[in-house]
């Protein structure tokens, strides 16, 4: 589980406050307008930003002062997930050993992970020969071999076309179920949340504004949320359609 207790963080002259408890094994969609702190929230959990005040507990272990490497977390960014001069196999292998000294068993693991994301046989290729979706799959394969229970995704599928995006979401969902992962997914697309998330965390003015199941949050009538969504996703029964 992910537990932020009164966490405060400063970036420049902006201050962020987070108070959030999330159960393990679920997919949580993080939504909110630009600049409200979605990426900051993920960066805090991954350890890329320092926590000024408060406590961060990941899977029962106080992680407030751990280095990114020590945390039970793995991240997937929108781009720059792969080293362009390393082969697909090596890029995945880096998740097992940072100096790429892999045992026979680990080599098998890499190939299995590639097969799980649908890229069996792609090991020798270079990232530049892959499509955007395939590159994200390689990064996902690396997240899998790292065997970290928490997976953080910062708008990872934004550059993909709708069909590829749907495929990736399905793959994500399937992997979450089979590996028991906790997934946090930053997205602007309510449809994504409906498709794979159990909960939504909605940020506004640099703090948590709403939290609840997907249906609860999307049906909420709070002004900030309605502003953000522009038009309601779930038709409200009180409104009569003329």
């Amino acid at each position: 589980m992910i537990d932020l207790q009164g966490v405060v963080c400063c970036i420049g002259d902006q201050q962020f406050h987070f108070e959030l408890q999330l159960p393990a094994g679920q997919c949580i969609a993080v939504m909110g307008a630009s600049g409200t702190g979605k990426s900051t929230l993920l960066n805090l959990i991954a350890g890329f930003e320092t926590i000024r005040d408060g406590k961060l507990i990941l899977n029962g272990c106080n992680s407030t002062h751990l280095t990114p490497k020590q945390r039970p977390v793995t991240s997937l960014f929108q781009e720059h997930n792969l080293f362009s001069h390393l082969s697909v196999f090596d890029n995945v292998g880096l998740g097992l050993h940072p100096g790429l000294r892999l045992s026979q068993l680990q080599r098998v693991q890499v190939n299995e992970a590639l097969a799980q994301v649908g890229l069996a046989g792609f090991g020798k290729r270079l990232p530049e020969t892959l499509s955007g979706g395939e590159r994200q799959r390689v990064a996902l394969a690396r997240s899998l071999v790292r065997r970290r229970p928490i997976l953080l995704l910062d708008e990872p599928f934004n550059a993909l076309d709708p069909a590829r995006r749907q495929d990736m979401l399905k793959l994500m969902d399937q992997l979450r179920r089979s590996k028991g992962l906790t997934v946090m997914l930053v997205t602007h697309e309510p449809k994504d949340a409906v498709a794979i998330a159990q909960q939504i965390v909605f940020l506004h003015q640099r703090q948590i504004y709403l939290k609840g199941t997907v249906m609860e949050v999307l049906a909420s009538q709070k002004a900030a949320l309605l502003d953000y969504l522009a038009h309601p996703v779930i038709p409200n029964s009180h409104h009569t359609i003329v």
């Binding site: 991954a46 991240s75 001069h85 880096l94 100096g99």
Partner: peptide, 26 residues
């Protein structure tokens, strides 16, 4: 070098030598 690359490096625990080999030299 993209900030994401540095984040990735710290998550993967790359050492100074690995960083030189995989990030800086290329």
């Amino acid at each position: 070098i993209a900030p994401e690359t540095w984040r990735l490096a710290s998550q993967l625990g790359l050492s100074s030598k690995d960083i030189w080999k995989h990030i800086e030299w290329p």
